[in-house]
Amino acid sequence: MTAHLITGAGSGIGTAVVERLAERGDDLWLLARDAGRAKELESRFPGSRTLVGDLATPEKLSWAFGHQELPDRLDSLLHIAGVVDLGDVGDLTPKIWQRQLAANLVSPAELTRLLLPQLRLARGHVVFVNSGAGLRANPQWSAYAASKHGLKALADALRAEEQANGVRVTSVYPGRTATPMQAKVHQQEGKEYDASRWMAPESVATTILTALDLPRDAEITDLSVRPGG
């Protein structure tokens, strides 16, 4: 059975991806920040299994995984979780920078490191759900964009390093998507949030599954998807 480990399964794009993979009958491992969240995800997605690890503290992930059962092999590792806090460079504190860098960059790097043996065994696929901010930085987006620019660098380096092991690496760059994170962004921007203006999470999920399902003789390296209409 095809096995996937997904971060960010509890909302937005992550939920849409989990629902699609569950419909296919795939084996799902969901990362939860704590035991309470793990129970919630297992109840919401019957048949799934959870790993507990907090992306806010990447330095503790190795210890946390050392006390849990890990999958024997992984066909994909899907990095979908993320956090965002906007603000001018002159106002952003180190704590705000570190929070976004930890969750959006350092934890994906550490999760990938810890799970590379399982990915190599399956000749698996690592998907980084990045952002348009990973390609350009707009005012008030410096910390988030820096974390996402770093995520692109991580993906590019990993792809070159793991090509000989048969591990594929894809970066997906969604534009604005109708998710709880987007509602928070609008609040921070002081703008009214209208979900109908933006892409549905299911549309981004289709993009991710397209990359996963590509025949083994090809690899999507970078894929941008934007709201249409």
Score class of each variant (00 low, 15 high):
residue 227 P to R: 13
residue 66 G to Q: 04
residue 153 A to G: 15
residue 27 D to P: 15
residue 188 Q to G: 10
residue 162 E to T: 15
residue 5 L to V: 03
residue 25 G to Q: 03
residue 224 S to Y: 10
residue 191 K to C: 14
residue 141 W to F: 04
residue 118 Q to K: 07
residue 179 T to C: 02
residue 38 A to V: 01
residue 53 G to V: 08
residue 120 R to K: 14
residue 95 K to Q: 05
residue 24 R to D: 00
residue 51 L to N: 05
residue 38 A to Q: 03
residue 85 D to H: 15
residue 3 A to D: 09
residue 175 G to R: 10
residue 223 L to M: 05
residue 210 T to K: 14
residue 43 S to H: 14
residue 194 D to K: 14
residue 208 I to S: 01
residue 167 V to G: 05
residue 99 R to M: 04
residue 226 R to A: 15
residue 33 R to V: 10
residue 161 E to G: 05
residue 72 D to E: 15
residue 157 A to K: 04
residue 147 S to R: 09
residue 161 E to R: 09
residue 153 A to D: 14
residue 62 S to W: 06
residue 203 S to P: 14
residue 173 Y to A: 01
residue 69 E to C: 09
residue 112 T to V: 05
residue 202 E to I: 05
residue 88 D to H: 11
residue 171 S to M: 08
residue 36 G to K: 00
residue 187 Q to W: 14
residue 20 R to T: 01
residue 85 D to Q: 13
residue 229 G to H: 05
residue 171 S to Y: 06
residue 198 W to K: 08
residue 170 T to Q: 00
residue 184 K to P: 15
residue 161 E to Q: 12
residue 162 E to W: 12
residue 30 L to C: 11
residue 58 P to V: 03
residue 164 A to G: 07
residue 49 R to Q: 03
residue 184 K to H: 12
residue 70 L to M: 07
residue 25 G to E: 06
residue 55 L to F: 04
residue 144 Y to T: 11
residue 205 A to D: 08
residue 16 A to S: 12
residue 167 V to Q: 10
residue 168 R to G: 02
residue 14 G to T: 05
residue 52 V to C: 02
residue 202 E to K: 04
residue 72 D to A: 13
residue 208 I to R: 01
residue 127 V to Q: 02
residue 18 V to D: 03
residue 54 D to W: 09
residue 169 V to C: 04
residue 123 R to Q: 11
residue 221 T to S: 06
residue 187 Q to Y: 10
residue 195 A to H: 12
residue 84 V to P: 11
residue 186 H to S: 14
residue 27 D to A: 09
residue 164 A to M: 06
residue 125 H to P: 00
residue 176 R to T: 14
residue 182 Q to R: 12
residue 210 T to P: 13
residue 142 S to Y: 07
residue 5 L to Y: 03
residue 36 G to M: 00
residue 199 M to G: 11
residue 181 M to F: 15
residue 189 E to W: 13
residue 217 D to Y: 14
residue 94 P to A: 12
residue 201 P to D: 06
residue 18 V to W: 06
residue 22 A to P: 01
residue 50 T to W: 02
residue 6 I to V: 02
residue 21 L to A: 06
residue 52 V to T: 01
residue 136 R to T: 05
residue 22 A to V: 04
residue 58 P to S: 11
residue 131 S to P: 07
residue 83 V to F: 08
residue 13 I to P: 02
residue 165 N to G: 10
residue 143 A to N: 07
residue 142 S to L: 05
residue 119 L to M: 11
residue 124 G to E: 08
residue 15 T to G: 04
residue 135 L to Y: 11
residue 76 S to I: 04
residue 80 I to K: 12
residue 203 S to Q: 11
